[in-house]
Design a protein around this nucleic acid. Structure first.
Length: 346
DNA sequence: AAATCGGGGCC
DNA sequence: GGCCCAGATTT
């Protein structure tokens, strides 16, 4: 009798899986934090952020008690800043609704902001050995290949089929859930990789549909692609006599939500008027610096940096709309990556 | 169902 | 330059 899907994965994980990751613990706070950081972010990138974050916020109570700016500052550079805002909000909900103790029910976990079905399942499986399936990018890749499932996994029908299959393949023994869940992630990350999968090292190769049909490189079916729009903006580097820069906090939602960034105008022509109306500052713009291209998933942003010196005050002074940051203060704050690059230039 | 959210690693 | 990554939320 050949071992089951789950049995083979667990046996493979025991000898070939990753066992040294810092979030491989049963503390739901640490598991949750790692899962959020690992959403769309690779393990090697997360490691240093995770250590720094835990040092500053060792438990959910410490995180809940912190100001949002502190949380965003530690998140700066990781991207998808709604993750940080949701993390903070969820910490406060855990304190208020659950007295600081994470629920073990995946459905309850999924009601916390930033925790979807798969992340909730991962937290429950790792922390409490709940018998519930995950379906992240790794698992989607493993399952579409092993079962030979065609169609983009982002489509509802395909995704539903994958969830059903993931549930059917769960190990019988709930105690095996932490190892089984980790095994799926590790197999996807180290063997069943997007390019050049190491099928010779795969415990599922014997009955893998994609391997049998030579379709490893066709599955999962890629997302239909579209052309990305181009956008441009001018970022004002307004400096005072002390050389400090004027930053403003971005709206809580949207791109770089809640982060501190440079004031922006559509074109250099609007710079002086914007400084006057928004901040009550008279400025003397210099020559525009070299353009900086920043690529997002869904558009390309060309940034023109425009340095300017404060030359006086308008009748109505509104510096409260912004805040003066020294270079060191700016680098320590929650700022988007392009600003970090601009600060590194001079 | 599609769009919105970033940034880094990798080929 | 394109694709990928331990996705969730909004529209």
């Amino acid at each position: 009798m050949t071992p089951s899907f789950a049995e083979r994965l667990i046996a493979w994980h025991a000898s070939h899986g990753r066992h040294d990751l810092p979030w491989q613990v049963s503390d739901p706070y640490r598991v949750w934090l790692s899962e959020i950081m690992l959403q769309q972010t690779q393990v090697t990138t997360v490691l240093s952020y995770y250590a720094r974050f835990l040092e500053r916020f060792p438990d959910v109570a410490a995180l809940a008690a912190a100001p949002q700016d502190d949380v965003l500052a530690l998140w700066s550079g990781l991207g998808y800043y709604s993750r940080a805002r949701n993390l903070h909000a969820a910490a406060r909900m855990v304190m208020e609704r659950f007295g600081g103790t994470f629920p073990r029910d995946p459905a309850a976990l999924a009601e916390l902001p930033g925790i979807g079905r798969s992340t909730a399942a991962a937290v429950a499986a790792f922390s409490f050995a709940v018998r519930t399936p995950i379906l992240d990018g790794n698992v989607k890749r493993v399952l579409t290949r092993w079962a030979g499932i065609d169609g983009f996994p982002g489509e509802r029908a395909v995704e539903q089929r994958l969830w059903r299959l993931a549930a059917e393949l769960l190990p019988a023994d709930a105690a095996a859930m932490p190892a089984y869940t980790q095994a799926q992630m590790d197999l996807g990350a180290t063997v069943c990789t997007p390019r050049k999968p190491a099928c010779m090292a795969c415990p599922l190769a014997d009955d893998c549909a994609a391997r049998r049909e030579g379709r490893q490189h066709e599955l999962p079916t890629p997302k239909p692609k579209k052309t990305v729009p181009e956008r441009s903006t001018v970022m004002l580097l307004i400096a005072d006599d002390a050389g400090r820069l004027l930053l403003e906090q971005r709206p809580p939602t949207g791109i770089w939500g809640g982060l501190w960034s440079l004031p922006e105008v559509p074109t250099t022509l609007e710079a002086e008027a914007a400084a006057r109306t928004r901040f009550g500052l008279e400025i003397d713009p210099g020559a525009a610096g070299a353009e900086l291209v920043h690529v997002f998933t869904h558009f390309r942003l060309t940034i023109t940096p425009l340095p300017a010196r404060v030359s006086g005050h308008a009748p109505v002074l509104r510096e409260s709309a912004g805040r003066w940051f020294s270079r060191a203060e700016a680098l320590a704050a929650g700022i988007p990556t392009p600003l970090r690059k601009l600060l590194a230039r001079a």
